[in-house]
Design a protein around this nucleic acid. Structure first.
Lengths: 133, 133
DNA sequence: TTTTGTGCAAACCGTTTGCATGGAG
DNA sequence: CTCCATGCAAACGGTTTGCACAAAA
């Protein structure tokens, strides 16, 4: 049912080696940098496939552009309001199991999952005095 | 510098009376229901203005469509993975002050704010047996 | 009258999709 | 050989924008 193609291996490899939560176009460019042939359509289709398989995470940045990363350990994202840089944030900071339990207890929702996107000002931009990038 | 127009009053009123976090098109339709004349472009411009003024919140739903609500008390959102319904969730569930303090201590970010979008399955959809809407 | 806001429609741009072809199994 | 995957390009759809006109101050 699912076939292993050159393109799928390529895109998964790029995602695994990308620590900056790339969008589809960035993945596409990294493929080109490797002199590998892929189309942007295939990049989109493959990234969505990885998300459905649970091998990648998808979230939207402040410009509503879809960002992806290879799912390793669960973590949240910290986005700089000035320069847009995205950093990972360890989920253990937030006692997520306890939180999910609390939510399930206090609401009628089941099968809860969440992604926390935190906005702030990164060290570099704070030093620069909050200028626009 | 800022002028009070019929359209701005209208859109703010619609947003204040909408408890379902409408997108721009929904706000536009509600204006039409009131037999009020506005263009979709003005709706977008005005909603963005309200966000910049801090009078409205903006976030993206699971389909990357911008949703708005009049900013009253700070709260999070609970979105049903099946039917897409959006509910409010009291922020007090999550000890947000403590969490922000923790984040500021453990990262180098400043001026932190966050919006938590939680996905789950609502009571109605759970009863229906998780069918697609 | 001056200046900002609106309506309209075209442009934008990230993303999806139809279809003919290619390649995995 | 069969099907699923890919490439290509067109279409999609939410959002933005330029410009002439309207209306607030």
């Amino acid at each position: 049912m699912q076939r292993e193609t050159r393109q799928r291996r390529l895109i998964m490899e790029i995602l695994l080696n990308s620590m900056d939560h790339p969008d589809a176009l960035t993945v596409f460019r990294r493929a080109q940098d490797k002199k590998a042939k892929v189309s942007i359509g295939t990049v989109y289709r493959t990234l969505e496939l990885l998300v459905k398989e649970g091998k990648a995470l998808k979230f939207y940045d402040a410009n509503a552009i879809a960002r992806y990363d290879a799912k390793t350990d669960f973590h949240h994202h910290l986005i700089c309001k000035i320069c847009g840089k995205v950093e990972d944030l360890d989920v253990s900071l937030f006692k997520s199991d306890q939180m999910i339990k609390e939510i399930e207890e206090k609401t009628h929702f089941k099968d809860i999952e969440y992604h926390l996107t935190i906005y702030g000002i990164c060290e570099d931009c704070a030093k620069r005095g909050n200028r626009e990038s």
